[in-house]
């Protein structure tokens, strides 16, 4: 059984249908990438999986580790081990990064019936993860994402992923706003999290990130449907040829449907 199984998923927001029948299956240990032009529904798919309620599910089914993902609240999905690295991480002024991370870890532990960890036990692990991402320890005492640069925010997302150790991590455009050096550091952090118990779904517009996080599978999402799947070479091909050909193909098949 796959870790994540998406069957004919349809979703809409404000009356516009964005996902028009997505099918996808991921197994533990795999890295998949979803690529596509702007507005194709990549971020919507990521947010629907994380159970954002602004999207209305009109059809389809999603199983996450055998459970009906679409019946879960966002915090329940998180506690089940689904992590979303946000495209636009949110600022929480006045709440330190360290406190926030510990609250999240404890919320998840509580859900699983485990004991909460205190600040003293938590810190060593946090420090170790910081090193992995080449992040300054000072970031722990700063308010969550407040006055962080775009690059720092993205790194902070990966830090959270490294601390929360999800079964499925979805990275939504984690490469935006990063210069080449920061991109390498983030990729290195993600690669360190690759494991047989974990699946990673990388959502991106550009192939560049996939030079550093090499996926097992690449899927192309156009106009709310996956129109092609293949290996890493598909990403390279898209980089050279662009999305235009696939978009026009999708448009003609869409009108035929």
């Amino acid at each position: 059984m796959s870790l994540l199984e998406i069957k004919d998923l349809h979703a809409r927001v404000d009356g516009n249908e964005i996902l028009k029948g997505v099918n996808l299956a991921l197994d533990s240990g795999e890295v998949h990438s979803i690529m596509g032009p702007n507005g194709s529904g990549k971020s919507t798919l990521a947010q629907v999986l994380a159970r954002r309620e602004t999207y209305e599910i009109t059809a389809g089914q999603v199983l996450f580790a055998g459970k009906d993902l679409l019946a879960l609240k966002p915090e329940e999905a998180a506690c089940e081990g689904l992590f979303l690295a946000f495209q636009y991480p949110v600022e929480i002024p006045g709440i330190s990064n360290a406190y926030f991370l510990r609250s999240a870890v404890n919320a998840i532990r509580k859900y699983r019936g485990e004991d909460e960890v205190d600040a003293i036990d938590f810190l060593p692990k946090l420090r170790e993860r910081l090193k992995l991402l080449d992040m300054d320890e000072k970031l722990l005492n700063r308010s969550v994402n407040e006055a962080f640069s775009g690059g720092e925010k993205k790194r902070n997302e990966i830090l959270q992923m490294a601390v929360l150790e999800p079964r499925l991590a979805i990275l939504d455009e984690t490469d935006s706003g990063l210069d080449i050096d920061a991109l390498k550091v983030v990729a290195q952090g993600v690669n360190a999290m690759r494991s047989p118990d974990r699946a990673i779904l990388v959502v991106t517009h550009y192939q560049r990130l996939l030079d550093y996080i090499v996926p097992d599978y690449v899927h192309v999402l156009v106009d709310g449907r996956i129109v092609r799947s293949g290996g890493p070479e598909l990403a390279l091909q898209l980089e050279e040829q662009g999305y235009a050909a696939l978009e026009s193909a999708a448009a003609s098949s869409g009108s035929a449907a």
Binding site: A50, R51, R52, E53, K73, P74, E75, A77, A78, C79, F83, L84, F86, Y88, P89, V90, I92, F100, S103, A104, A107, I108, Y111, Q160, L164
Partner: peptide, 11 residues
């Protein structure tokens, strides 16, 4: 979006 962010982290 702020609430969703915190809830996605399990709160």
């Amino acid at each position: 979006d702020q609430l969703f962010y915190l809830r996605q982290r399990g709160l």
